[in-house]
Protein backbone atom coordinates (compact mmCIF):
# COMPACT_ATOMS: atom_id res chain seq x y z
CA UNK A 1 0.00 0.00 0.00
CA UNK A 2 2.79 2.35 0.93
CA UNK A 3 4.63 1.48 -2.24
CA UNK A 4 1.54 2.18 -4.32
CA UNK A 5 1.15 5.51 -2.63
CA UNK A 6 4.78 6.36 -3.28
CA UNK A 7 4.43 5.26 -6.89
CA UNK A 8 1.45 7.51 -7.45
CA UNK A 9 3.22 10.40 -5.75
CA UNK A 10 6.28 9.93 -7.93
CA UNK A 11 4.28 10.04 -11.14
CA UNK A 12 1.67 12.50 -9.91
CA UNK A 13 2.11 14.72 -12.97
CA UNK A 14 1.28 11.87 -15.31
CA UNK A 15 -1.65 10.63 -13.23
CA UNK A 16 -3.22 14.04 -12.92
CA UNK A 17 -2.85 14.41 -16.69
CA UNK A 18 -4.61 11.07 -17.24
CA UNK A 19 -7.36 12.03 -14.84
CA UNK A 20 -8.05 15.47 -16.35
CA UNK A 21 -7.89 14.15 -19.90
CA UNK A 22 -10.32 11.37 -18.98
CA UNK A 23 -12.72 13.91 -17.51
CA UNK A 24 -12.51 16.02 -20.66
CA UNK A 25 -13.10 13.10 -22.99
CA UNK A 26 -16.00 11.88 -20.87
CA UNK A 27 -17.62 15.29 -21.14
CA UNK A 28 -17.18 15.20 -24.90
CA UNK A 29 -18.79 11.79 -25.07
CA UNK A 30 -21.77 12.92 -23.04
CA UNK A 31 -22.73 14.94 -26.08
CA UNK A 32 -23.17 11.74 -28.05
CA UNK A 33 -26.15 11.14 -25.83
CA UNK A 34 -29.08 13.19 -26.77
CA UNK A 35 -29.43 15.72 -24.00
CA UNK A 36 -26.56 17.53 -22.39
CA UNK A 37 -27.27 17.75 -18.71
CA UNK A 38 -24.01 19.31 -17.61
CA UNK A 39 -23.95 23.09 -17.34
CA UNK A 40 -21.13 23.49 -19.81
CA UNK A 41 -22.85 25.42 -22.52
CA UNK A 42 -23.08 29.06 -23.35
CA UNK A 43 -26.68 29.21 -22.16
CA UNK A 44 -25.73 29.22 -18.50
CA UNK A 45 -25.99 32.31 -16.35
CA UNK A 46 -22.49 33.79 -16.52
CA UNK A 47 -21.56 33.15 -20.11
CA UNK A 48 -25.11 33.78 -21.29
CA UNK A 49 -25.14 37.24 -19.77
CA UNK A 50 -21.71 38.16 -21.11
CA UNK A 51 -22.53 37.02 -24.63
CA UNK A 52 -25.82 38.86 -24.35
CA UNK A 53 -23.94 42.08 -23.62
CA UNK A 54 -21.48 41.57 -26.43
CA UNK A 55 -24.34 40.84 -28.78
CA UNK A 56 -25.89 44.17 -27.84
CA UNK A 57 -23.00 45.79 -29.67
CA UNK A 58 -22.85 43.49 -32.68
CA UNK A 59 -26.60 43.47 -33.28
CA UNK A 60 -26.46 47.24 -33.48
CA UNK A 61 -24.00 46.90 -36.33
CA UNK A 62 -26.37 44.53 -38.12
CA UNK A 63 -29.42 46.80 -37.74
CA UNK A 64 -29.48 47.95 -41.32
CA UNK A 65 -29.61 44.43 -42.63
CA UNK A 66 -32.10 43.31 -39.98
CA UNK A 67 -34.37 46.19 -40.91
CA UNK A 68 -34.25 45.37 -44.58
CA UNK A 69 -35.09 41.78 -43.84
CA UNK A 70 -38.02 42.79 -41.63
CA UNK A 71 -39.39 45.07 -44.31
CA UNK A 72 -39.16 42.31 -46.86
CA UNK A 73 -40.94 39.89 -44.60
CA UNK A 74 -43.60 42.45 -43.73
CA UNK A 75 -44.28 43.00 -47.39
CA UNK A 76 -44.64 39.31 -47.90
CA UNK A 77 -47.08 39.03 -45.01
CA UNK A 78 -49.07 42.08 -46.12
CA UNK A 79 -49.53 40.45 -49.48
CA UNK A 80 -51.03 37.44 -47.81
CA UNK A 81 -53.59 39.33 -45.75
CA UNK A 82 -57.20 38.41 -46.24
CA UNK A 83 -58.25 41.96 -47.06
CA UNK A 84 -56.14 41.87 -50.17
CA UNK A 85 -58.21 39.18 -51.72
CA UNK A 86 -61.52 39.67 -53.34
CA UNK A 87 -63.96 37.05 -52.30
CA UNK A 88 -65.24 35.47 -55.47
CA UNK A 89 -67.01 32.50 -54.06
CA UNK A 90 -68.54 32.73 -50.63
CA UNK A 91 -68.45 29.04 -50.04
CA UNK A 92 -64.66 28.86 -50.22
CA UNK A 93 -64.23 30.86 -47.05
CA UNK A 94 -66.61 29.16 -44.71
CA UNK A 95 -64.51 28.58 -41.63
CA UNK A 96 -65.18 25.50 -39.61
CA UNK A 97 -63.22 24.82 -36.48
CA UNK A 98 -62.91 21.14 -37.09
CA UNK A 99 -61.24 21.86 -40.42
CA UNK A 100 -58.78 24.46 -39.28
CA UNK A 101 -56.86 23.42 -36.28
CA UNK A 102 -53.67 25.26 -35.43
CA UNK A 103 -50.64 23.10 -36.01
CA UNK A 104 -47.59 25.39 -35.91
CA UNK A 105 -47.04 28.40 -33.70
CA UNK A 106 -44.14 30.81 -34.12
CA UNK A 107 -42.21 33.16 -31.92
CA UNK A 108 -39.04 35.12 -32.45
CA UNK A 109 -35.72 35.32 -30.63
CA UNK A 110 -32.36 36.96 -31.05
CA UNK A 111 -29.17 35.00 -31.69
CA UNK A 112 -26.63 36.04 -29.07
CA UNK A 113 -23.90 33.55 -29.89
CA UNK A 114 -23.20 31.69 -33.08
CA UNK A 115 -20.37 30.00 -34.91
CA UNK A 116 -19.77 28.70 -38.41
CA UNK A 117 -16.12 27.68 -38.26
CA UNK A 118 -16.29 24.46 -36.28
CA UNK A 119 -17.32 21.05 -37.44
CA UNK A 120 -20.12 21.06 -34.87
CA UNK A 121 -21.65 24.48 -34.49
CA UNK A 122 -24.11 25.73 -31.90
CA UNK A 123 -25.91 28.98 -31.35
CA UNK A 124 -27.46 30.57 -28.30
CA UNK A 125 -30.79 32.42 -28.26
CA UNK A 126 -31.95 35.03 -25.79
CA UNK A 127 -35.17 33.19 -24.90
CA UNK A 128 -35.58 30.22 -22.63
CA UNK A 129 -38.09 28.07 -20.80
CA UNK A 130 -39.64 31.20 -19.32
CA UNK A 131 -40.73 32.21 -22.80
CA UNK A 132 -42.03 28.77 -23.62
CA UNK A 133 -39.02 27.45 -25.51
CA UNK A 134 -38.60 23.70 -25.20
CA UNK A 135 -36.05 21.23 -26.56
CA UNK A 136 -36.77 19.96 -30.10
CA UNK A 137 -38.39 23.14 -31.31
CA UNK A 138 -37.25 24.19 -34.78
CA UNK A 139 -35.29 27.37 -35.46
CA UNK A 140 -35.75 28.96 -38.86
CA UNK A 141 -35.98 32.05 -41.00
CA UNK A 142 -38.12 32.55 -44.06
CA UNK A 143 -35.15 31.64 -46.21
CA UNK A 144 -33.88 28.59 -44.42
CA UNK A 145 -33.63 26.25 -41.48
CA UNK A 146 -31.15 27.37 -38.82
CA UNK A 147 -31.21 24.49 -36.33
CA UNK A 148 -32.99 22.64 -33.55
CA UNK A 149 -33.24 23.65 -29.88
CA UNK A 150 -31.25 21.24 -27.74
CA UNK A 151 -31.13 22.75 -24.28
CA UNK A 152 -33.01 25.43 -22.45
CA UNK A 153 -32.36 27.33 -19.27
CA UNK A 154 -34.67 29.90 -17.74
CA UNK A 155 -33.63 32.75 -20.01
CA UNK A 156 -31.55 31.26 -22.78
CA UNK A 157 -31.61 28.33 -25.12
CA UNK A 158 -28.87 26.47 -26.90
CA UNK A 159 -29.45 25.45 -30.49
CA UNK A 160 -27.75 22.76 -32.55
CA UNK A 161 -27.02 24.54 -35.80
CA UNK A 162 -27.75 23.05 -39.22
CA UNK A 163 -23.95 23.18 -39.49
CA UNK A 164 -23.47 20.18 -37.20
CA UNK A 165 -22.40 16.63 -37.97
CA UNK A 166 -25.39 15.11 -36.15
CA UNK A 167 -27.91 17.19 -38.04
CA UNK A 168 -29.97 15.64 -40.80
CA UNK A 169 -32.88 17.33 -42.43
CA UNK A 170 -35.47 15.75 -44.68
CA UNK A 171 -35.77 17.90 -47.80
CA UNK A 172 -37.66 17.81 -51.06
CA UNK A 173 -37.05 18.95 -54.61
CA UNK A 174 -39.86 21.43 -55.01
CA UNK A 175 -40.29 20.84 -58.74
CA UNK A 176 -40.89 17.09 -58.74
CA UNK A 177 -41.27 16.15 -55.09
CA UNK A 178 -38.30 13.78 -54.78
CA UNK A 179 -37.13 13.38 -51.20
CA UNK A 180 -33.53 13.62 -50.00
CA UNK A 181 -31.59 14.10 -46.84
CA UNK A 182 -29.63 17.30 -46.19
CA UNK A 183 -26.31 17.12 -44.40
CA UNK A 184 -23.48 19.59 -43.85
CA UNK A 185 -20.07 18.23 -44.89
CA UNK A 186 -18.09 20.62 -42.72
CA UNK A 187 -16.31 22.70 -45.30
CA UNK A 188 -18.01 25.83 -46.55
CA UNK A 189 -20.88 27.09 -44.41
CA UNK A 190 -22.72 28.24 -47.52
CA UNK A 191 -22.87 24.77 -49.06
CA UNK A 192 -24.56 21.58 -47.91
CA UNK A 193 -25.19 18.30 -49.63
CA UNK A 194 -28.40 16.44 -50.28
CA UNK A 195 -28.02 12.69 -50.14
CA UNK A 196 -30.28 9.85 -51.24
CA UNK A 197 -31.94 11.53 -54.19
CA UNK A 198 -33.12 8.64 -56.37
CA UNK A 199 -30.99 8.25 -59.49
CA UNK A 200 -33.95 8.53 -61.84
CA UNK A 201 -34.88 11.97 -60.59
CA UNK A 202 -34.23 14.64 -63.21
CA UNK A 203 -32.27 17.52 -61.77
CA UNK A 204 -31.80 21.01 -63.15
CA UNK A 205 -29.33 23.64 -62.16
CA UNK A 206 -30.99 26.02 -59.71
CA UNK A 207 -33.75 23.63 -58.66
CA UNK A 208 -35.39 24.77 -55.44
CA UNK A 209 -34.90 22.68 -52.32
CA UNK A 210 -37.53 22.98 -49.57
CA UNK A 211 -38.21 21.10 -46.35
CA UNK A 212 -40.28 18.02 -46.88
CA UNK A 213 -42.34 18.20 -43.73
CA UNK A 214 -41.62 14.56 -42.98
CA UNK A 215 -39.92 15.53 -39.74
CA UNK A 216 -42.13 16.49 -36.86
CA UNK A 217 -40.04 19.59 -36.21
CA UNK A 218 -40.20 21.73 -39.33
CA UNK A 219 -43.29 22.57 -41.37
CA UNK A 220 -43.15 21.61 -45.05
CA UNK A 221 -42.15 24.01 -47.80
CA UNK A 222 -39.51 26.14 -46.10
CA UNK A 223 -37.04 27.37 -48.68
CA UNK A 224 -33.57 25.92 -48.09
CA UNK A 225 -31.53 26.75 -51.16
CA UNK A 226 -30.81 25.93 -54.77
CA UNK A 227 -28.99 23.07 -56.49
CA UNK A 228 -25.56 24.00 -57.79
CA UNK A 229 -23.83 20.73 -58.52
CA UNK A 230 -24.34 16.97 -58.61
CA UNK A 231 -22.84 13.90 -60.09
CA UNK A 232 -24.62 10.89 -61.52
CA UNK A 233 -22.51 7.79 -61.23
CA UNK A 234 -23.27 4.75 -63.29
CA UNK A 235 -24.79 1.90 -61.31
CA UNK A 236 -25.53 3.85 -58.18
CA UNK A 237 -29.06 4.08 -56.95
CA UNK A 238 -28.74 7.47 -55.31
CA UNK A 239 -27.40 10.88 -56.28
CA UNK A 240 -25.63 13.23 -53.89
CA UNK A 241 -26.07 16.86 -54.85
CA UNK A 242 -24.65 20.13 -53.57
CA UNK A 243 -26.98 22.87 -52.42
CA UNK A 244 -26.19 26.52 -51.97
CA UNK A 245 -27.91 27.50 -48.72
CA UNK A 246 -30.03 30.61 -48.95
CA UNK A 247 -29.53 31.37 -45.28
CA UNK A 248 -26.29 33.17 -44.44
CA UNK A 249 -25.31 31.57 -41.13
CA UNK A 250 -22.62 34.13 -40.58
CA UNK A 251 -25.13 36.97 -40.38
CA UNK A 252 -27.91 35.61 -38.20
CA UNK A 253 -29.49 38.17 -35.91
CA UNK A 254 -33.18 37.39 -35.46
CA UNK A 255 -34.70 33.96 -35.92
CA UNK A 256 -38.12 32.36 -35.58
CA UNK A 257 -38.88 29.39 -33.38
CA UNK A 258 -41.54 27.01 -34.58
CA UNK A 259 -43.50 24.78 -32.28
CA UNK A 260 -45.39 21.85 -33.70
CA UNK A 261 -48.48 21.48 -31.54
CA UNK A 262 -49.14 17.98 -32.85
CA UNK A 263 -45.59 16.73 -32.48
CA UNK A 264 -46.32 14.58 -29.47
CA UNK A 265 -49.28 12.97 -31.11
CA UNK A 266 -47.32 12.12 -34.26
CA UNK A 267 -44.24 10.94 -32.35
CA UNK A 268 -46.42 8.79 -30.12
CA UNK A 269 -47.70 7.10 -33.21
CA UNK A 270 -44.36 6.71 -35.00
CA UNK A 271 -41.76 6.05 -32.33
CA UNK A 272 -43.11 2.66 -31.18
CA UNK A 273 -42.76 1.48 -34.78
CA UNK A 274 -39.11 2.59 -35.00
CA UNK A 275 -38.11 0.96 -31.76
CA UNK A 276 -39.26 -2.46 -32.92
Amino acid sequence: MRNLYRFILKYQFFFLFLFLEAVAIMLVFQHQQYQRTFYLHSANAISGRLLHMSNGVTSFLLLRQANRQLVEENTLLLNRQMENFMITDQQQFVARDSLYQARYTYQHARVINNSVTRRNNYMTLNKGSRHGIAPDMGVLLTNGVAGIVKDVTKNFSSVMSLLHSDMQLSVMLKRNGHIGSLRWEGRDYRLASVEYIPAHASLHLGDTIVTSGYSTIFPPGIFIGTLTDWEVRRGETFITATVELALDFNKLSYVYLVNNLMKEEQDGLELPLHSN
Binding site: F17, L20, L27, Q30, R36, L40, N113, S115, T124
Partner: peptide, 14 residues
Protein backbone atom coordinates in the same frame (compact mmCIF):
# COMPACT_ATOMS: atom_id res chain seq x y z
CA UNK B 1 -18.28 27.15 -21.65
CA UNK B 2 -18.38 30.20 -23.89
CA UNK B 3 -18.07 28.44 -27.20
CA UNK B 4 -20.45 25.52 -26.65
CA UNK B 5 -17.81 22.92 -27.33
CA UNK B 6 -18.32 20.60 -24.32
CA UNK B 7 -14.77 19.92 -23.16
CA UNK B 8 -12.67 19.76 -26.29
CA UNK B 9 -10.67 22.87 -25.41
CA UNK B 10 -10.08 21.51 -21.90
CA UNK B 11 -8.81 18.21 -23.31
CA UNK B 12 -6.54 19.92 -25.81
CA UNK B 13 -5.11 22.42 -23.34
CA UNK B 14 -4.41 19.73 -20.74
Amino acid sequence: MFSDSLAIHAGATV
